[in-house]
Amino acid sequence: MNSMVQVDSASAIAAAAAVAGNPVKIVAQGVNVYYGEKHALRDVDLDIQERAVTALIGPSGCGKSTFLRCLNRMNDTIVGCRVTGKITMDDQDIYDPQLDVVQLRARVGMVFQKPNPFPKSIFENVAYGPRIHGLARNKAELEEIVVTSLKRAGLYEEVKDRLGDSGTSLSGGQQQRLCIARAIAVSPEVILMDEPCSALDPIATAKIEELMDELRENYTIVIVTHSMQQAARVSQRTAFFHLGVLVEVGVTGEIFTTPRDRRTQDYITGRFG
């Protein structure tokens, strides 16, 4: 049968409509990325709307994660990686040499593919960001931030009695929510999620997706995902990457129902990928 992703058109369109008027948060223009000799990303132009979930989809190695890592300059940590073009957030060039990458990352948080809690207590995991950025003036404030963040990440009820336990003792889904709590503890404006559910079971995935929907109220979210169903469920806008090129971008419902590009259609109908 046709494996085209079923999108609940009505709700998707409603959601898209709800965010349609949101201002643009991040603008990428002519972004190219090279890993040494390899040209990983070609001339990507993409706008990301504020307080909406933007999904980046595409087959493996298409450059979607690479693009994501450009947004908080995580590519800087890779030796031999070169980024050209312009990416602005709130009209500020994030590759401006004047701009401080440490502060940028405080504004653009990130959640990784594999849950990576620090081998410290749950509390310390969440308190890490506020501590290094000096967000809390005293212990009480720090505790408040930790608790608030855990609540927002929907983890508080499960761990409130064992905040002193190691973050690595949690289950996979809990660990990932802990990482989300860790990310939102510094109140970033944007949260980047690099396949946040790929290492999780379906129930844990559902929880994270639900959480994303709530976080959308306050944060701009960009998510890389392998799962088209997930993109359809959580995102308002979707961008499709293929072989390092941004093929198509648009309202999620439209991308999945009426793709303009042949390659997009082939991908979402499962001809390749």
Partner: peptide, 14 residues
């Protein structure tokens, strides 16, 4: 999952 309606906390001051 969570019904705490939270105000937007202040972001990192730069």
């Amino acid at each position: 999952m969570t019904d705490v309606a939270l105000p937007r906390v202040r972001s990192v001051d730069i």
